[in-house]
Each structure stands twice: as C-alpha cells, then as structure tokens.
Design a protein around this nucleic acid. Structure first.
Length: 503
RNA sequence: GGCCGCGUGCCCGAGUGGACUAAGGGAGCGGAUUGCAAAUCCGUGAUUCGUCGGUUCGAAUCCGACCGCGGCCUCCA
C-alpha cells in the first residue's frame, strides 16, 4: 500500500516519497502567543498529530517541529494594553497552548522552537539573502526583493505584480522597490519595548513575520525537508514568502509537500480577526472554555471526522452528534471488558493472531470482517489521510463487534474460542482507533477517577430499586430511575444486573 | 477585478470514470429485546449526487456555462 498526499504546490495527489528514505521531517506553523487559542488553532496540530501517528505506524522515523511566534507586532500591542512584558505574555500563552494540545492528544511534537531564541539563525538567513542581492536595506529595515525570485508566486498561483501589493494603511510604500516586497527585518521604533529590540547588522530591530519559519524549519529539519503545513489562510503570503526566502538562500527545494488544512467556520463564516463579532464569538470558541465544557476527545473527533482539507463548521449541534457517536464506541469497549473479563487495553491480541476459530461461524465471520476492515482503514489513510473514511470503517467494525456480542451472549456465558475471537477483533479495533488518537484512555470507569462515593451510592440505589422490581413495584423502581436520570445518572437493566453511567 | 475551493438524503460527512443497487455518524420512524425504559441489534429513507449542456460504451466523479456558498489577494491556524 502506498501513501499519496495532496500537495498544494502541484494541486494534485502525489506519491509520498521522503527526501531521506525512512525518515520524515515535518513543520507546522504554530501559534502567535499573544492571546488564548481558539478551536481553529487546534485543527492543524490535531491533524499533524494524526499524520505523525500514521507515518510512524508505517515505519517512518518522524521529526515534527511546531514554531512559537513570540516576537511580533501583536505581542507588542498586547504588552502595551496589559502592562505585562512581551515574554511574560508569550510564556503564559505558550503554556496554555501546550496544555490544550496535550489534552487533545497532541503529545508528539518534537521541537517547539521560539522565534526569540533563534535571532542568530534569522539574522544569518537574512544576511545570506542580502549577500545574494535578493534583499536590500532601507533605513533600519530589510526587505526581500521579489523580483529576484523567478518563480515567486508558485505556491499560491499569483503572477501579477498587483496581487503582491501589501497596501496596508500607513505603510510607507516608497521604501520598497516592488510593491510585493516584504519585510525580513523591522527596525526598532523608539516606543517599542526594549525586550523586543534585538541587535543586528542593520541596527536594533526584530524579525519580519515570515523569516522565523524558514530559519527555524531549516535549523531543525535541514534545507530540504518533507512536509510543511498550516492553515489554508497561510498559503499567501506567509508560505509563499517562506519558500521565496529559503529557496533563494539555499538554491534548493525548501519543503517537498505542502499540506493545508481547511479553516474552522462558525455560522458558515471563517473565524476572522476582522469580524465585528469576533470577540464575542471568540469567547465561546476559546480552547480553554471548550475544553472545560467538553471532553477533549470530542473536539479531536469533531476535527478528524471530516477530511483535513475541508472546512469544519463548528456548532453545539455538531458537537452533540459527535458525542453520541463517540459514546457508543466507549459502550462497546465496556461490553468487551465485561465479556473478556479484562481491560481491552491490556489485550495484545490482534485479529490476525486468531487463526483458529474452530467450528465457530460467528467468530470466523467477525475475524474476517475485522481483517477486511483493517485493509479498508489503511487504504483510506493512505489516500491523503482520509480520516473521515477511516472513522467510517471503525464504526462498521463496532457494528460487527456489537452484533457478535449479541449473538454469543459472551457477557453472561463463557466460551473460550468465542472469547479469543472477540479479543482479537477488539484488539485490532483499538489499535486502529488509537492510530487516529481516539480511545486513547480507558473509558473512565463511570463516575471517573476518585469517585468511589458515587460508586457506593449508586450501588445502593440499584440495590433498593432491585428490591422494588422483585416485588413488582414498578412505580417505585421507575421513580428511582427517572429521578436519577434527571440528575444525570442513567440506569440500564441488563441480563446480568443493572449498570449505571453518567449521561 | 485576479487566484483558489466547495455544492451528496432532515443534518453532518466519505466516495473523484464501471464492484454506487452512493460508506459512516446524528436525528426520525417501524420492529426485536425489556415489566417499562436505556443500551444493542434489525428494518426504513437520495432511481439520485446545485442547474443545464457536452465528452464517453459508461459520470456524483472529466469538460463548459450558469446559479449559490466560502476562502485568499491586509493580520490570521
């Protein structure tokens, strides 16, 4: 099976062949740490984490770098507004970002270099461009000369000069040779805090927006690496300029594959800083707020349940639909645990291990279905990381497992060959789910950790209700169940007794 | 205005020339099960993939036009 990825550079799906066989270097444009992250900031990391999991599964040794922009206009403004220093704000926001990512299951980032700690690399990168006459100094600023880059615009398909014009209000255009030229180094202004004034051959100042990424990507991944990603909105000018800087400096291909994820939308509109309702909408979409309200895995599921290049429409309805779906997978795991008498995560048996299902047609069918599903799952992932398709397969497998459990009644009867087949099928199911970063943790046992009291209390309710049921006092039994349900505890009567869970 | 992308059942969302009699999820409805529920399972739903043309033996999938939506061209993941 061969992996194909959609490359923005060519506009086509291409066969994935890393620069160095067996190894993959990938770079994702990370956050500017000046204010709390919102749900959209989680999309890239979750997708790249999933990509890294998959590439690792396929045997590649993957190095993943995510930069932290901690020197920037917006940080200076934030510092002015809050009275905190730029590094204080930056470290604080970075910490929150990292915590949010960890909660979402994104724990595989290898390096998170900060721009502020790579000024030397940035300065020498700029110097290279000046030496090659591709950049020029005006006052304390340094600009990249786009006319020196023959294939400038190749990523975003921009050719005409007018499209490069950065006609931002207040910007002095006269200083630039071409309207599309962009800043590599910004000379310090007198009113800017000293902590963002770095020494350079061109006087005190700070890096332009794009240069840190090409400098740090090459520092950690080499002059040519495999995958560069980011949101679709970064294609131009950010990524275009990264390519221009890096390739003009080295004369080599910068990144081989460019992957761009779709943007998160709210009420079918992009979450944009220029939106008048931006602040209000932001509040509800802040990652920290969302993570406080919902299981992190739910957000992750929402993100990967559609293809990474599609936009995601974020809404409460979408979240609750995801919750129902995800809950059913956890219920399945609980059934498996009951039937096998073991924590499904400790089962190291895979479907392909179960060769002999004996004269046991349901078991043979289950194993066959799961093995076939595994192939389809991997095919989907090989097709430009089609996580949506892969999740579809997962649910089909879940259906097979539930049917098998219904048919064999393994939760109440024991039968060794049947149990083995279940273990194998469930083991494979879990391995695949975890490739997507789903079902990473054992279903928190009902009430959750450290909730022994709930366990005892619910046991008591169940016991009393059983007495009522045995006496056929169903009004009492139903009252107990209804009242508990109102408080958020669901009772389920099964063949082997009554179970409870939180709604 | 230029450059991208999208339009699939009630909603979300895969599928990008023939295995599509269009995956999967959510919601609904009917049934099995249950004292009743919940959970699980079964059944049910697009003769059709924005519209109209074209290419082809064959198109949701390719081409063109049109309609609608969104993104970028200014800070943005």
């Amino acid at each position: 099976m061969t992996l194909r990825v959609y490359n923005t550079l060519s506009g086509e799906k291409e066969l994935f062949e890393p620069v160095v066989p067996g190894k993959v270097g990938m770079y994702l444009c990370g956050p500017t740490v000046y204010k709390p992250s919102h749900i959209g900031h989680a999309v890239g990391p979750v997708i790249f984490d999933t990509i890294k999991r998959y590439l690792s599964f396929k045997g590649y040794k993957v190095t993943w770098v995510v930069n932290v922009t901690d020197v920037d206009d917006k940080l200076i403004v934030a510092s002015r507004e809050t009275g905190r220093t730029v590094p204080e704000i930056a470290r604080d926001m970075e910490k929150k970002y990292v915590e949010a990512m960890a909660a979402l299951g994104v724990r595989s980032i290898d390096q998170m270099p900060r721009a502020s700690e790579h000024i030397r690399e940035i300065v020498s990168h700029i110097q290279q461009l000046i030496d090659r006459a591709a950049a020029y100094v005006v006052g304390g600023d340094v600009y990249f000369d786009v006319s020196k880059d023959a294939d400038y615009g190749k990523l975003s398909n921009r050719k005409s000069e007018e499209q490069f014009a950065g006609t931002r209000e207040g910007l002095v255009q006269a200083a630039k040779r071409n309207s599309g030229d962009f800043a590599l180094w910004k000379g310090a202004k007198p009113d800017e805090p000293p902590e963002v004034q770095y020494d350079s051959p061109w006087g005190k100042g700070r890096p332009g927006w794009h240069i840190e990424c090409s400098a740090m990507a090459m520092r950690y991944l080499g002059q040519t690496f495999d995958i560069h990603g980011g949101g679709l909105d970064l294609k131009f000018p950010h990524h275009e300029n990264e390519i221009a800087q890096a390739e003009t400096a080295t004369g080599k291909v910068f990144a081989k594959y460019w992957l761009h994820n779709g943007l998160t939308r709210f009420n079918t509109k992009k979450i944009s800083k220029s939106d008048p309702d931006f602040e209000k909408v932001m509040e509800s979409l802040q990652l920290s707020n969302l993570l406080a309200k919902h299981p992190p895995e739910l957000l992750r599921y929402l993100i990967i349940q559609s293809h990474y290049r599609s936009p995601i429409d974020f809404s409460d309805q979408a979240l609750s639909a995801c919750k129902s779906a995800l809950d059913s997978l956890y219920r399945l795991l609980e059934r498996v645990e009951r039937a096998t008498g073991a924590d499904p995560y400790s089962l190291k048996v895979l479907a392909e291990h179960v060769r002999d299902t004996g004269a046991n047609p349901p078991a043979a069918e289950l194993i066959e279905a799961v093995v076939r599903g595994q192939v389809r799952f991997l095919e989907a992932m090989d097709d430009d990381f089609n996580t949506a398709g892969a999740i579809g397969v997962l649910f089909e497998m879940a259906g097979h497992l539930n049917r098998y459990l219904d048919a064999t009644r393994l939760e109440t009867n024991s039968n060794e060959p049947s149990r083995l087949a279940l273990q194998g099928a469930a083991g494979t199911f879990l391995v695949l789910a975890r490739l997507l970063g789903l079902l990473l943790e054992r279903p928190s046992k009902r009430g959750g950790d450290g909730d022994a009291e709930s366990e005892k209390l619910m046991g008591l309710f169940i016991e009393i209700r059983k007495m009522a049921r045995d006496a056929r006092q169903f009004q009492i039994a139903d009252a107990i169940r209804n009242r508990l349900s109102e408080i958020g505890f669901v009772l389920e009567d099964g063949q082997d007794g009554t179970r409870w869970r939180r709604a």
